[in-house]
Each structure stands twice: as C-alpha cells, then as structure tokens.
Design a protein around this nucleic acid. Structure first.
Lengths: 319, 319
DNA sequence: GTTCATGCTTTGTCCAGGACTAACCATTGA
DNA sequence: TCAATGGTTAGTCCTGGACAAAGCATGAAC
C-alpha cells in the first residue's frame, strides 16, 4: 500500500528528490533485488535510511546507476564499474564512442543533435520530413535513420543529450515513419509478415523501421506493436496465416530470455512459418538457433526477404 | 543471470507454458512481492515448484490473475476475489459491464469486434479510416474511439477477444490517429502543451487521443511518448517553455504513485505551468490535488482548454 | 440525515540474508 | 586456432518478519 516514490520527512514536506527503492527501479530499470545485491557486494549504491529503515536514494545515486547501466548494456561488467566515479564512467563512455566521432562525423548527425539540444521540435520534424521525402522510404531508413539512431544514442551516453531530448527524437521519428508507412499503398501480397516484440521489450521503433523497409517491397505487414505474450504471438501467427514472424530485440534485452522464447516459438509454430529475430541484441547471440533467421542489421532484412522469395513455393494450405 | 521466462524440464525441452515468477510479473503487472504475499495470505496462486524449489505458474493461474487484476482496477478488493473461480470472476465482470450492453449496444462496436475476431486487419483499417474521414478528427475521438475502447476492453475481459486481437486493434487505431494528427497543419500558437506519461505507464494511446483533440483547436502539441522520468519531465517543460503539461494514466496505474509524482512536479515547476492529469485512473482519485487539473474524460480536456484560454494573459517571460 | 473523527482490517512494500545457477573469463590441452 | 575445463562474477529466487497506508465501519456531533 506504499510506493510513495518520493518520501516525506518529518515536517510533511517532501524532501526533494529522494527516491525509495521502487522509484529507483522505475527510473533505472534495475530490479530491487539487483539494487540490494549491489549494495551487499559492491558497496554501491549505499543510500541513507529513513526513520523506518528504508533506503533513500539521491539524484547522484540515480545518475551513477544510469551511467553504469548504459555501460553494462554495451557489455561491460558491473564489478569493474561500480568503484569508479561518475566522471570516470562518463569518460569510459566517451572512449567507447570516440572512434566513430573523428571519422567524418557527418554534418547531418550534428545538425539533428543541435536541433534536439535547442528544443526545436518543429525544425526537427521538418528536417526528418524533408530527408524522407528526398530519399524515399527505404533509403531513408537504411542510410539516414540507422546512423542517426547511433549518433543520438552515443550523444545520450556521453551526457550531451537529456533523456527527454532523446524521447522527443524517438517520437518525431515514429511519427514520420508511421506517416510514410500508412500512406504507402496497402498490399495484399506475399509474404504476410507478423511484427511484434516479446513481453519486456518496449521498443517498437525497430518494428516500424522493418515495416518501412518491407512495405515498399510489396510485403503485407501486420504489426501487433510491442510486448505480446508468447502464446498470443503463436495464436496470431496461426490466425493470420503469416509466412514470416519478425521479432525485434533492443540491445538491453537478456539474450537467454530471447533464445529460450525463440526456441519455444519455433517448436510451437508450423515449420513453414519463417522466424526472423532482429535488433541490437542479436549481435550478442553466440550459439546458432535452429529454424530462426538472425537479422543483425536492417540491410539483412531486405536480403532475408529476397532469399525467402527465392525459395518460396505456394502451398495449397494457404501458406 | 537468469530469467528464462519459460523453464526447462529435465529433458531440455521447454515444458510448455509454465512461467516463472518474473514472467508472471511481466505478463500480469503484479510484482513478485505481491504474488508471494497473495500465496501466503489467500492461498492463491499456489504454483507447483520445480527441482530447484522455484514457483512454476500455469496458464490457468495467469488467466485468473489477469481477471483479478482487471476487477481490482475497477475498485474491487483482492480478499473478496481470490477465492472465486475464473468463471465467477468473469461473471462479475459481465455484471459490471452489462448496463452498457443492453442499451442500444451499437452496431458499430459489434462490427469492429467481429472484424477483430475474423483477423481482418485490412477491413479494420478501412473501417477506422472511413469513420475518421466521415466524422472528422475530434468527433471521431470523442464519439467513436472512446466507446470502442470500452467495448474492446470489455470483450477482452469477457474472454471474447484474445490479447493479440486487442493488440491489433490498438495498433491500427494508433496508426489512424497518428496519420490524422500528422497531416493536420502544424501549429505554432498558444498554448504549447507537453504530453507524456510517468515511468511505468506504457500506454501512449491516451496521449495521442488528447493530441488529436487539441491539434484542431490550434494548440501546439509536443509529445515525448510514454515513460519519461520525472526529472526529465520537469526539464522538458522548462526547456520548451510549455503552458500546459498533460499527463495520462491508465486505469491500472497506482493512485498513490501518481498523486505523489504530481505533487512533486507541481512543486518543481513554475506556477504559470498548468498541469493536467487525465485517464481512467483519475476517476479513482479522492483527495484534491492543489494546482493540478483532473481530466476524467476526454470531453473535459476540451473544456479545460477553453477555460485556460479564457484566463490566460500573455507574459513577458515567454510564457 | 449528513459529516467528520476514530479505530480496526486489509493490503502492499520493504528488509535481511541465504542459496543456487547461468554467464563470463582465463587457463590448459589438442 | 580452437575447444574443454574450472574458477569467478552476477542476477534471481526463496523465506519470513515488519510496518504503514488505504479502505472501511462505527459512532459522535452538527
């Protein structure tokens, strides 16, 4: 009956910006268990306690936890990170993204980041719209959006962009892509592709990017949006008689959870349904998954489609 | 280093459809602590254990948990629900929604649900597009979408719609609204409204519906999409110099968490920024929140806008 | 009869600390 | 160069206790 998110001190005035463990879980994505375990094992974070013995995290804790999380999402291990200061962590992030910066850091990417930093929503919308118009949908996604996403992600990691600035970017991009996809002539052709993500994977941008690549190729896309329970993914694939099931995983998604789920779906679905697994996470997958096509980047999606079409023969069963 | 989501039995074959506690948390939105406490107190759910002593929930558990959650979201208490069977719970849900059904259960709603049940994505898209075209954006949102959402939600609660069918509905509706909002002439006027949700609130449909109502009124909407951390909401409101901050909460969102967050934001934001809180949850709010306008339904949003405009006087500070 | 204060009951969250296993990593052997 | 092995790191699950907030009912006061 609790979860105040922000605790009150004795005077009844909310002590500014002190968060309890639930709030930290929400803000950082780290589970309560992990937060307590880190405190036990690494001595960080070590929050003060309120009158009731409950942990009270400070904004500084949150900032460092976010920095740690970011670096972990690109493969670093918590034990090596926890002892460092926030500045050191940010420096680490810089090093990681530096190689990409000096080699012809394209003007476009710097322009977009500048627009975000000046909070010019209208300008950003125009910029994205113009690019899309000039390049066409597929080229826009492959040559512009992918590096832009990377540039925005790196800038965020380096602390040059706030969370809300990144949100605005994502939202504007979603709007632009959605618009373009919706106004493409609706296809009724082959293959039919079902798009969604596993529960826990919130990011739907990848789905829309794939859709934007496939629709101009005459593919009929059916998107369920993010977070469909596994059993419902199976039901939907069967109900819509799809030829391809395309799943998207962001870099932070646990590999184990993905591979288990994919193996389960492969068993539950008829063999003539092709399964595609795409997104950042797939680059961390070591073992091969029988009956699942890995799509480590967007260009591979187009290739996979070509390959599917080359091998496909119409079946009487409706597939 | 775990969270398989779906456990393996001794043969290495995934025992179909058995979920661990993390997976149940994801699928139902009930925290691990709550699941364990319910087992202790109410003796439900009482899952089997695997070789390692870990809980293994069945699909039947999930179904009943979802039914319980749904009824709790409309105000019932868990102690009264837990002992009942799934059928009884569904009956309860029926009773609750019956009053709306017999009074001219509109043909439109039954049509849409029939389209969903026959998995006719194209037909649904056409139906929504036609309605929107005929009615105009505002009327579509107020008179059509709102009852449709309710009808779809009720049908899901009664088990007449699968999760994936509801997902498809949401996705198609999002596409239609986004399209309409994007093609409205961009406004640069007053007020500027910032739209987003708190962390933990994933549903962005409400945001888009509000946007669809406001844009035709000449409002400049800036949407960050769902789940912006509180501190970043504050930063965004200041950076964009917005006049109104609009937050959306679905019925399942914890009231306490919302009111605390709103009080916090109210303290952190300059007084000339109006805060709107809308969505199903706001109907469960008892106490008045100083400096926060509650928007229990979408028509109120339009009224609140009129009221804001009646009282607003331009300020030198840019607000 | 309505409204408010009070106390009891219900319910969710937090805590501690132990256990187990998957993932990672470095070393060794083929 | 690659694969097996074993130690180390790291995340999740468990139990069971404690506490406080929200809901609810009772009774007093207007």
């Amino acid at each position: 009956m609790v979860s105040p998110g922000q605790s009150m001190n004795q005077t009844g005035q909310a002590s500014d910006l002190v968060l309890n463990i639930s709030a930290v879980e929400r803000e950082t994505g780290l589970s309560k268990d992990v937060l307590r375990m880190w405190e036990r094992r690494y001595d960080f974070p070590r929050p003060e306690r309120d009158d009731n013995g409950e942990r009270q995290y400070t904004p500084a804790d949150i900032a460092k936890l976010r920095a740690v999380k970011r670096l972990m999402d690109v493969g670093m291990r918590p034990g090596k990170l926890m002892a460092r200061s926030l500045d050191e962590l940010n420096a680490l992030a810089d090093v990681r993204s530096a190689p990409r910066r000096d080699q012809l850091a394209p003007a476009l990417e710097r322009d977009v980041i500048a627009l975000l930093q000046s909070h010019d929503a209208t300008g950003l919308q125009h910029a994205l719209g113009n690019l899309l118009m000039r390049q066409g949908l597929q080229k826009f996604v492959l040559d512009t959006v992918t590096p832009l996403n990377r540039a925005v992600g790196d800038a965020w990691m380096r602390g040059e962009l706030q969370v809300f600035e990144e949100h605005l970017y994502t939202e504007q991009l979603l709007a632009a892509l959605r618009m373009a996809v919706s106004s493409s002539p609706r296809q009724t052709g082959v293959p039919r592709v079902l798009l969604t993500t596993f529960p826990g994977e919130q990011h739907g941008l990848g789905l829309l990017m794939v859709e934007a690549l496939l629709v101009p190729e005459g593919v009929q896309c059916i998107s369920l949006g993010p977070q469909t329970p596994l059993e419902d993914i199976r039901r939907a694939a069967v109900a819509h008689k799809v030829h391809i099931l395309a799943l998207s995983f962001s870099g932070a998604f646990p590999v184990r959870q993905a591979t288990d789920g994919l193996a389960g779906l492969r068993r539950l679905l008829p063999p003539q349904v092709t399964i595609w697994a795409g997104g950042e996470m797939t680059r961390r997958v070591r073992k091969t998954l029988p009956g699942v096509v890995l799509i480590p980047d967007l260009a591979s999606a187009v290739n996979a489609l070509r390959s599917w079409r080359a091998h496909w023969v119409p079946q009487a069963s409706g597939y």
